[in-house]
Computed example of a mutant assay.
Amino acid sequence: MDIKIKVNGTLICESVSPDLLLLDFLRKHGCYSVKRGCETANCGLCTVLLDGTPVLSCSVLCARADGHEVYTLEGLQEEASGFVGFIADQGADQCGFCNPGFVMNTIALLRENPDPSDDEIRAYLAGNLCRCSGYEGQLRGIRNYLDYINRKKQGKE
């Protein structure tokens, strides 16, 4: 079947098999931040933004993305660069394997809610498994980033 998907701002037109997963399509097109983890839609490593909404690309058929826009971390580096250092400062990126999923969900969260509570942050990050850090470092990093942004807005930075 023929599909057209806009990936990180670039339109890709291709013939694909009906059972091709979005994850495999994206990796074929150089989006290596999209990782294969559990293959059961439980770990969040394959999170991408489909029309701005975080989805697990391991559970979305490529055909379902036909005519839509997909963003991976490769296409959102500039937006992500604002807060990833804050997460790293908390030691929350120990092995780094889960980072792309966390970053994609954080981008979606901050687009939807620029001033989330800690519980709202936890809810957005709940679908990402991390074997190294215990999640509190990610929460602290995001909270520190939001505090920094608020201080900047008030002219205190």
Rank of each mutant, 00 (worst) to 15 (best):
K28E: 14
K28C: 05
K28A: 14
K28S: 14
H29G: 08
G30L: 07
C31R: 15
C31L: 09
C31N: 15
Y32R: 14
Y32I: 14
Y32M: 14
S33G: 15
S33D: 11
V34R: 09
V34Q: 09
K35H: 15
K35L: 06
K35S: 05
R36Q: 01
G37N: 00
G37H: 00
G37E: 00
C38R: 00
C38V: 00
E39T: 00
T40N: 03
A41S: 09
A41I: 00
A41Y: 01
A41V: 01
A41T: 02
N42P: 02
C43Q: 00
C43F: 01
C43H: 01
G44P: 05
G44N: 05
G44K: 01
C46I: 02
C46V: 01
T47G: 03
V48Y: 02
V48S: 03
V48H: 02
L49I: 12
T53F: 13
V55L: 02
V55D: 01
L56T: 08
L56I: 03
S57K: 01
C58P: 01
C58G: 01
C62Q: 01
A65V: 04
D66I: 02
H68M: 12
H68P: 05
H68V: 04
E69L: 04
E69W: 04
Y71Q: 15
T72C: 08
L73I: 11
G75K: 12
G75C: 12
G75W: 11
L76M: 14
L76S: 10
E78N: 14
E79C: 11
S81W: 13
S81M: 13
G82I: 02
F83A: 08
F83N: 07
V84T: 15
F86R: 03
I87H: 01
I87C: 04
A88N: 13
D89M: 07
D89W: 02
Q90M: 13
Q90T: 13
Q90S: 08
G91V: 07
G91K: 06
A92D: 11
D93E: 11
C95A: 05
F97V: 12
F97Y: 15
C98M: 04
F102N: 08
F102W: 08
V103S: 06
V103L: 13
M104Q: 12
N105R: 15
T106Y: 09
T106A: 15
I107H: 03
L110Y: 12
R111F: 08
E112W: 12
N113G: 07
P114H: 04
P116A: 11
P116N: 09
P116H: 11
D118R: 15
D119Y: 08
D119M: 12
E120A: 15
I121F: 09
R122Q: 13
A123G: 09
L125A: 06
